[in-house]
Design a binder for these strands. Structure first.
Length: 261
DNA sequence: ACATTGACCTGAGAGC
DNA sequence: TGCTCTCAGGTCAATG
């Protein structure tokens, strides 16, 4: 599930619930989600530190530990944070649990184990090592930057939007939503897009991502004209009420409105 | 350079 | 009820 808006919501959840707490213990439950760090090393290095500030780049979330190092979280398909108190039930598939001195906990939950945790010293180096492009919701990203990234590509618009080395953060769901709002067919080639279409995609990208965050990523809180709640067989386009269609692009199920796009 | 496919994982839901 | 099949918001490697 986690694309840029989801991860931004996780970030705010972390800040609200778990930032600034003293970690008494950390419990790694599954080596599969550990990237460059072992369970033993986590147990060694994390306790006695305080959870610090956080930042996000694309689908990656960084959490600083006492100003000493960062934990980089990637949520895969099914990851999320779950904060709970002593008297509350834990999450379903905890893969790493922080125990706070005050008696509460933060779990990194990931049912399908496709997420990954890394311990890093420098965020920039990490972003570079992953080959990530600029964050898709970066205020410094101008229309000209955007065009420069995409106009040289012969890939389909949706594939290009999901390419994390071009821009980081857009995944399957929001690529569909952005192209729907921009009125561009997902299989349209970047090289065939007009200036007007580039501008439309650029503007809709920022709008869609921001509105999804405002809606806390909940389908029922999304704007009326979002495709997102209608991406299912038989679903109706929120703008023209024609039946939405599904095709495969880059091996991913892709919904679009045949009349609006 | 790009599309496609399968692998990595687990579980929910559909159809029988 | 239980089985099988397909699918799921991510990424990576191999192949054409």
């Amino acid at each position: 599930m986690p694309e840029l808006p989801d991860v931004e919501v996780f970030k705010r959840y972390y800040e609200r619930k778990a930032q600034g707490k003293f970690v008494s213990e950390v419990r790694p439950k599954d080596d599969k989600v550990l990237g460059n760090v072992s369970a033993a090393s986590l147990r060694e290095r994390i306790p006695e530190n305080r959870t610090g500030k956080s930042s996000r780049h694309g689908k990656h979330l960084f959490v600083e530990m006492s100003g000493k190092f960062w934990l980089a979280f990637h949520f895969g398909m099914t990851g999320y944070f779950c904060f709970y108190r002593e008297d509350e039930p834990p999450s379903d598939h905890p893969r790493l649990i922080f125990d706070f001195e005050e008696g509460s906990h933060l779990a990194f939950d990931c049912q399908r184990r496709l997420g990954e945790i890394n311990l890093i010293g420098d965020k920039k180096d990490f972003v570079e090592s992953k080959g990530l492009g600029p964050d898709a919701l970066n205020a410094d990203l101008s229309l000209d930057d955007f065009k420069e990234v995409f106009s040289g590509s012969r890939a389909m618009a949706k594939s290009a939007l999901m390419d994390q080395s071009k821009l980081a953060g857009v995944g399957n769901i929001y690529a569909d939503e952005i192209l729907f709002q921009a009125g561009v067919h997902p299989r349209e080639k970047c090289s065939d897009l007009s200036d007007e279409e580039f501008k439309e995609i650029y503007e809709q990208m920022a709008r869609v991502l921001e509105q999804a965050i405002d809606a806390e990523v909940k389908p029922d809180k999304m704007p009326e004209d979002f495709l997102l709640p209608h991406r299912e067989p038989g679903g109706r386009c929120p703008k023209c009420s024609k039946e939405v269609e599904k095709v495969k692009v880059s091996g991913r199920g892709s919904y679009f409105c045949p009349s609006c796009q």
